[in-house]
Computed example of a mutant assay.
Amino acid sequence: MTTSPLRSEKLDLRLTPGAKQTLQRAAAAAQRSVSEFVLESALTSAAETLADRQSFQLDGERWEALVAALDAPPQMHPRLARLLQEPSVLEQSLAGGAG
């Protein structure tokens, strides 16, 4: 028999009576307590939200394009280089206020 980790953390929610009633109906339909239903639903949603931030999948053609872009030498962009050499708005306002 495996043991579950001890649930020692608590999360409080404030919700409308209608929202609570909806959760209660959904939990009953899933044959779970409201706490179990909310926890399972929240963890499923969290996993889906985090999935695209942890890994992504590409087909062979797109993978090759990504690898080629990462392996390619950096491109020169004269307008960007010129912009980075100009004083920023902050630097201009500080220089103007120092007199």
Rank of each mutant, 00 (worst) to 15 (best):
M1N: 10
M1R: 13
T3Y: 09
T3H: 06
P5Y: 03
L6R: 13
R7A: 04
R7F: 07
R7G: 10
S8V: 00
K10I: 09
L11C: 03
D12Y: 00
D12Q: 05
L13H: 01
R14Q: 03
L15F: 10
L15K: 07
G18K: 06
A19H: 08
K20M: 15
Q21I: 06
T22P: 03
T22R: 11
L23M: 01
R25D: 09
A27W: 13
A27D: 04
A30C: 09
A30R: 07
Q31R: 06
Q31H: 08
V34R: 11
E36W: 01
E36S: 04
E36D: 13
F37S: 02
F37Y: 10
F37V: 00
V38F: 15
L39S: 07
L39I: 05
L39E: 04
L39N: 03
L39M: 08
E40P: 07
E40V: 01
E40A: 11
E40H: 08
S41P: 09
T44N: 09
T44L: 09
T44H: 08
S45W: 13
S45H: 09
A46V: 03
A46T: 12
A47W: 04
E48A: 00
E48V: 00
T49R: 07
L50F: 07
L50C: 03
A51C: 11
D52M: 01
R53A: 08
Q54M: 08
S55T: 02
F56T: 10
Q57M: 09
Q57E: 04
D59V: 12
G60D: 15
G60A: 13
E61Y: 12
E61S: 11
R62G: 07
W63I: 07
W63N: 10
A65R: 02
A65L: 06
A65M: 04
A65H: 09
L66W: 01
L66E: 00
V67H: 10
V67L: 12
A68K: 12
A68C: 11
L70Q: 15
L70T: 14
D71M: 07
A72K: 10
P74A: 11
P74K: 00
Q75N: 13
M76A: 09
M76H: 12
H77I: 06
H77N: 14
P78Q: 08
R79A: 11
R79Q: 12
L80H: 15
R82P: 02
R82G: 11
L83W: 09
L84F: 14
L84M: 14
Q85K: 00
Q85R: 13
E86M: 15
E86Y: 15
E86Q: 15
E86W: 11
P87T: 14
S88I: 15
S88G: 13
S88A: 12
L90G: 01
E91P: 11
E91R: 13
E91Y: 05
E91W: 05
Q92H: 13
Q92Y: 06
S93Y: 02
S93T: 10
L94M: 03
L94R: 15
L94Q: 15
L94Y: 07
A95N: 10
A95W: 06
A95M: 14
G97H: 10
G97R: 14
A98W: 00
G99L: 14
